[in-house]
C-alpha cells in the first residue's frame, strides 16, 4: 500500500513525466538534422534488433505468470511467433499464431 503524502506522490509523477520526456526527446531534440558519422548511422540501424530481443528474452525464459519458472507452453509459443513472423513478415499473423500455440499448449499440458 502506498503511504506517501499527496505532494510527494505528485512530485514523483511530475519528475517521472519530465524525465521520461527528456529521455525520449534527447537525440531527436538535440541532433535535429545534423548528419552523423557513417559508423554511428550503421550502429543506429541495429537499434531495433539490439534492444527488443534483450527486452523480451527474460520475460520468455523466466515468465512472471509461473513465478519465474521456465515453462514449455510459453517457450513453444515464443518459437512459433518467431518462425511465423520471420516466414510471413506479418505482425498480426505472428501474434495470433503465437497466442494460439500458447493456448493450445496450455490446454494440452494442463
Amino acid at each position: 500500500m502506498i503511504d506517501l503524502a499527496t505532494p510527494t506522490i505528485w512530485f514523483i509523477i511530475l519528475l517521472l513525466g519530465i524525465g521520461t520526456f527528456l529521455i525520449r526527446f534527447s537525440f531527436i531534440g538535440v541532433l535535429g538534422n545534423r548528419r552523423l558519422p557513417d559508423y554511428v548511422m550503421r550502429l543506429l540501424r541495429f537499434v531495433p534488433v539490439a534492444v527488443m530481443p534483450g527486452l523480451v528474452a527474460p520475460l520468455i525464459v523466466w515468465p512472471q505468470a509461473t513465478g519465474g519458472e521456465p515453462d514449455l507452453p510459453r517457450l513453444t509459443a515464443a518459437v512459433a511467433a518467431l518462425l511465423i513472423g520471420a516466414a510471413t513478415r506479418s505482425l498480426l499473423g505472428a501474434i495470433v499464431g503465437g497466442m494460439s500455440v500458447l493456448y493450445l499448449m496450455l490446454y494440452l499440458t494442463s
Binding site: 515468465p63 505468470a65 511467433a81 513472423g85
Partner: peptide, 24 residues
C-alpha cells in the same frame, strides 16, 4: 487468458521480420 505473454509475443512478432540478414 495468459495475457501476460501477449507483451513478449508482440515484441517477437515485431522483431522477427527484421532478422533477414546475418548481421541482424
Amino acid at each position: 487468458f495468459a495475457l501476460d505473454f501477449a507483451v513478449p509475443i508482440t515484441f517477437i512478432a515485431l522483431v522477427a521480420p527484421a532478422l533477414r540478414s546475418l548481421p541482424h
